[in-house]
Design a protein around this nucleic acid. Structure first.
Lengths: 135, 135
DNA sequence: CATACATATGAATATCTGTTCATATGTTCG
DNA sequence: CGAACATATGAACAGATATTCATATGTATG
């Protein structure tokens, strides 16, 4: 449990010029440190092009590690390392079948996240894409 | 546009043991390199506890930089740097009002993403949390 | 049991990322 | 204009992370 510093302790703007109502409202809405970390870990797992592609591939149906490596043009080792992360976060489920291990999305949240993400990107103006690149 | 290597070129399992249907299906579902990067950048923006907290704070209503720094107990500089990232990705919108700059969520996608993410975390079994930590 | 194959993992490395510190920009007011 | 304040930004440093290489584990099969 991390203690929230007092307003007056902050190396920030003068307390008189801050908007206390807003700050209180914000603090009430803040997730705790653990919740924030869990959320960040989840989104962080989706925050890499390779893993996005892995998950998109799995969204189309289960695949073994070998298939994933072939589909993405990656090393088996790299794929395994990433799958381990995704597995640990509960995004992906593994089922052994002989020498092979089949991977599949563990639930539909990933699909939902990818869909909302794609929608967000689609709704951006082309102008904003430039801003993004130059930033 | 990145070229997808031929199955036979890969330093991966023997082509005979891979499942061509699955690989084709996966490849058809794969986002292009740019789309994957855009998605990863979006999720990457949510992949940091600080930014999750910033966005959660803004989800409760607009705040100026000063308020954000006070609410999160962070330096104004750190907040500004993160806001720049969020702004560039279209997650957050800035409106100048005198000396102050008010920030707000740019659209509802962020709220949706945070909601789905929270739901995913809530639906995980306690056992999985352990796996996650040890992994 | 030994071999072959699919997958997992550890260590090392190069890259990326978040914060800090110093300073610049932009705005109001005297 | 110049001072005061809110915000933005650049450089630098510390910590995280993705890939590679080497090797280990697990499973079938001869």
């Amino acid at each position: 449990m991390r203690s929230i510093p007092l307003l007056s302790d902050l190396d920030t703007c003068d307390i008189d010029h801050v908007h206390p109502e807003g700050v209180w409202r914000a603090r009430a809405a803040l997730p705790g440190a653990e919740a924030a970390s869990d959320l960040a870990a989840l989104f962080g797992a989706l925050g890499d092009p390779t893993r996005v592609r892995l998950l998109a591939a799995l969204a189309a149906g289960p695949l073994c590690v070998c298939d994933l490596a072939a589909a993405l043009g990656m090393t088996q080792s790299a794929v395994s390392h990433q799958l381990r992360l995704l597995r640990a976060l509960g995004l992906v489920r593994a089922r052994r079948e002989g020498k092979l291990v089949w991977y599949a999305l563990d639930d539909d949240h990933v699909r939902a996240l990818l869909a909302v993400g794609a929608e967000h990107i689609g709704h951006r103006t082309p102008a904003r894409k430039e801003t993004e690149r130059s930033a």
